[in-house]
Design a protein around this nucleic acid. Sequence first.
RNA 1: GGGCGCGUCGCAUAGCUGGAUAGUGCACCGGCCUCCUAAGCCGGGUUCCGUGGGUUCGAAUCCUGCCGCGCCCGCCA
Length: 572
Amino acid sequence: MQALIDEVLPALESAMASVGIQGDYWRKMLARSKEASQGDLALPCFPFAKQLGCSPDEVAQQIVDVLELDIGQAVAVGPYVNIRASMDWLAKQLSKTVESKGLILIEHTSANPNGPFHVGRARNAVLGDTFTRMHRAAGYDVIAEYYVDDMGKQVGILCWALENLDEAQVQALLAEGEIPIEDSPHSSKEDHIRVLWYQAANLLRAKDPAVDDGVTELVQLSEEADADVLARFEAAYQPVLDGMLVTLSRMGIEFDSFTKESTFIVDGSVEVLMNQLQSSELHCVAENGAHYLELESKGIQGKSTRFYYRRGDGSSLYATRDLAYHQQKWTRSGRLLNILGEDHKLQSKQVSIALQELDTQPPEVVFYAFTKLADGKMSTRRGNVVYMDDLLDEAQVRAYAVVKEIRSDLSQERLQEISDAVGISATRFNIARISPDKGITFRWADALSLEADSAPFIMYSHARACSIHRKAGKVDTSVGLDISALEGSAGELVRRMAYMNEELQTAIDSASPHQFCAWLSALAVDYNRFYRDNHVIDDAGIDVQNYIISELARDYLRRGCEAVGIIPVEEM
RNA sequence: GGGCGCGUCGCAUAGCUGGAUAGUGCACCGGCCUCCUAAGCCGGGUUCCGUGGGUUCGAAUCCUGCCGCGCCCGCCA
């Protein structure tokens, strides 16, 4: 909408001046209309009434009387000036190409490789990948990055378990701890196998202190960049990580690069940075020699004002390595975006302050609220989880039932292909369409919903457009679109499409992928209405004008789907 | 105890840089396939926008008290 505002403003300015309204405080009042029927932009005239000594309705009319727009028209409706862009102006927006906007590194997911990917983590992955896709659609180059925790306690426990427990012990411990061993098609995946060792070791820790001793020793060695231990860690977690990545790939989520936490111990950058921090004005040393930054002066309140970055024994902490990691990321991209759960808010703030002490710019961060089960928080350790592999299976089974019902004419193979796409798209969209700061309680029915306002609805609209495209065959479109003649639902469809790039950019800038999801749903609605009112193919042959619009919409629907991770199948 | 976030129809959700009758989906009721995919379209809503104050011409939106829910407050990751 900003492009339209920019175009309208000069004319409006002179109109306001000639009516007698001083200043430019009203500029920010010019905003998009709430309803399409009211036009594209609206200016409320209440505040001018007193100044001019007449009613808001009269002010609106006066402004409209002197306002000369060449990109649309203005009408006074009560106390509002409503401005509607002309079809010609909208058409110009459609023909604009996406400009290149530079590089951004988006780090997301980065889940500990200690077990299968579960739905609690899915929000990070779906949001991260949706941001990645939206940025790409808007003209950015994106590095999708996964930070691998390859040296913490969790990996240490996994490694210890695999080296010290045999299968019988694992089975016995899990039975005793009442952690169910799932029997699923994925039971033979390494992430699903190795998580049992991880869970068993966690149970054993509670009664055998030798476990923690062993783990602690491993973790300490890893922090000293012990090559042997790091290699053993990798041997333990890599098959798990690979399994997780298979799940993510199934959801259409791929990464361009992986960075291991141990990198920054091995290359010494953490040590360099810890020494640098000593010259910070915030630097303090605790009684036992631990180093921290005192953040009280930086607006951190309560008990958490100390940011420890070096232990009493001289070693670094996770957060310290995170600082080194951010410095490394800045060497790869001029913009950084992190997708983090709300539990990382404080830590992220502390890291940002510490980075500034190192003369390093903090990253942009998007936080999202947790996904929990109806009976509490998810935990891989306790086995209180719904694994993504199982959710996707279920989604695809349910989708298959629906698709088969409707399309009995399709081959088994085609049915499977479509229902897989529907299942995955619906699962993703059900996450992406919700505001990130709204908490989600996981319910099967919601997660698998195939109803309207969901991915299948949008996919269906796209499939309709594809069907028309197939049926129409080769069409001579050289006459072009006579856009000024458009009205009704065809005009509304064009209007919707014209704002795609702005909607995309706004969703990116305000970290609100759900807004773009809403735009996409609205586009699908508009296409369905266009479809109802305007036939492309009928007895008389093909209506070229309608065909061109349908083809435009097909392209916009496809691009929109790709930008939010919906698979735009061509029939369903 | 302190910090951050959330609370909108039976359920879910949008709107939150103040402005027009608070949108949308589900559920429920009715209508539309001799015509390009009916997973669609059209019609049907009395919501103290958690609650009490305040600011304003105007408050779901801003300020503030209270209530409820979530997250965080390790020399863990």
